[in-house]
Amino acid sequence: MLRKQSILNRCAPRRAAARRSAVLSCCGLALLIPLLTSAYVPPHPGAPAPGEHVGEHESGWPIEHPSLSLRTEVAPAVARPGDPITQTAVVGNTGDTTLAGVVVTLDSGPCHEVLGHLRPGATETASCSGTAPAHGRVSARAVGMSHGGLPVVERATAEIAESPPEPEPPAPKRPSVALEILPARAGSVPVPVRNTSTVPLLGVEVTGEPPACRRTLGTLEPGRSVTYTCRAAPGETVRLAVSARSLAGEVTAADALVVPPLPPAPPAAEPSPPAERPPPAARPVPPPLDETRVELADSGGPRESPAQTAGFIAVLGVLVMMVSVGALSSATRAGR
């Protein structure tokens, strides 16, 4: 019994401390709620008194309206990519509360400027030296934070006009001359010589082949030209060169070559068709031979035809041959 009572006595202080902590926690939370909320709505006031304007005596927690203004400029306003420029930014606090930790970033450098605190209505200026970008635009960014912890961000841009390219330097005043040989006309070859520079040319002389095309022209003013003609045979090569000098003594020259074409050959005459040969003359037909019989002179005997006479002579020859052979055979036997 004594042990049970001692346990209850020990637990009683702990329960009382827990109750006191719970009460204090509830009271502290009730006091912190208005501080944690940024907009506290007060109870509806009664009707304003006569002569009192609404808003003169506001009750409740104040509401913040943080705001920033930002403007950026570039000097010079006309530049080419890579040229040095200076970017300037003007930051203003257009809200109704002080802004802390105001920082401006300019991308021409880039540069980061810390302006710190900025009161309502105040302005600050930041500048940065850099180079003009290729796209011709620079930007700026400003950030800050109100007393109640609300962040504020503002951005601005500026265009850079590209400057026109620098004009090319004028060409030096050097002497130059041009020579041309035009196609021949009726055996005459036109040869124009022109001063293509902006300075007078002295001692203009044309040399080459054929000798008939050589000339001494003397002085030739800027932009002026002289054309002369010379004779050249068809197919003869015309090779000319011109030389001149300026007042400063600089020498210039040019040459040209042309071969006048040969005149076209006359068209060949078409061959005439071969003349028809007359038909060969008919050979005369010899008259037919008459079979005449040769009659022997009167011999008093019977007359025979030539065929019979020939046969008789042949038989006689055979007989003579046989007789000769027989005589030879007899002589041979007798010699043995």
Results as ranks from 00 to 15, higher is better:
315 V>E: 12
304 E>M: 14
56 E>K: 05
110 P>V: 01
231 R>G: 13
290 D>H: 11
213 C>N: 08
252 T>R: 02
281 A>V: 07
315 V>H: 06
333 R>W: 11
321 M>E: 09
118 L>V: 01
78 V>E: 14
224 R>V: 07
1 M>V: 15
40 Y>S: 09
274 P>N: 09
284 P>G: 10
47 A>T: 13
142 A>H: 01
122 A>P: 00
307 A>V: 10
62 P>H: 04
40 Y>L: 08
125 T>Q: 14
86 T>K: 02
5 Q>I: 14
324 S>P: 00
229 T>D: 14
272 S>I: 02
164 P>Y: 04
136 G>L: 01
285 V>R: 10
145 M>Q: 13
24 L>P: 04
55 G>K: 02
205 E>I: 04
163 S>T: 13
279 P>V: 10
103 V>D: 11
124 E>K: 15
105 T>Y: 14
48 P>M: 03
150 L>K: 09
239 R>M: 08
195 N>K: 02
120 P>E: 01
219 T>Q: 13
63 I>D: 07
110 P>M: 15
218 G>V: 00
154 E>W: 00
218 G>E: 05
328 L>C: 10
115 L>W: 04
42 P>L: 03
201 L>N: 06
178 A>N: 13
321 M>L: 15
57 H>T: 14
198 T>S: 15
306 P>K: 06
325 V>H: 03
41 V>Q: 10
254 A>W: 00
175 P>Q: 02
1 M>T: 12
201 L>K: 01
203 G>T: 01
180 E>S: 14
80 R>C: 08
204 V>Y: 01
194 R>G: 07
238 V>M: 02
188 S>R: 15
308 Q>L: 14
219 T>P: 07
145 M>G: 13
90 V>A: 14
111 C>F: 05
58 E>G: 12
98 T>W: 00
181 I>K: 05
228 Y>I: 03
319 L>G: 15
226 V>N: 11
328 L>V: 05
206 V>K: 05
248 A>T: 11
135 H>G: 11
143 V>C: 07
288 P>I: 08
315 V>N: 08
74 V>F: 03
62 P>F: 02
148 G>N: 07
302 P>R: 15
273 P>Q: 14
2 L>G: 15
59 S>E: 05
10 R>M: 13
82 G>E: 04
165 P>I: 06
11 C>T: 09
142 A>S: 06
158 A>W: 02
59 S>A: 09
53 H>T: 11
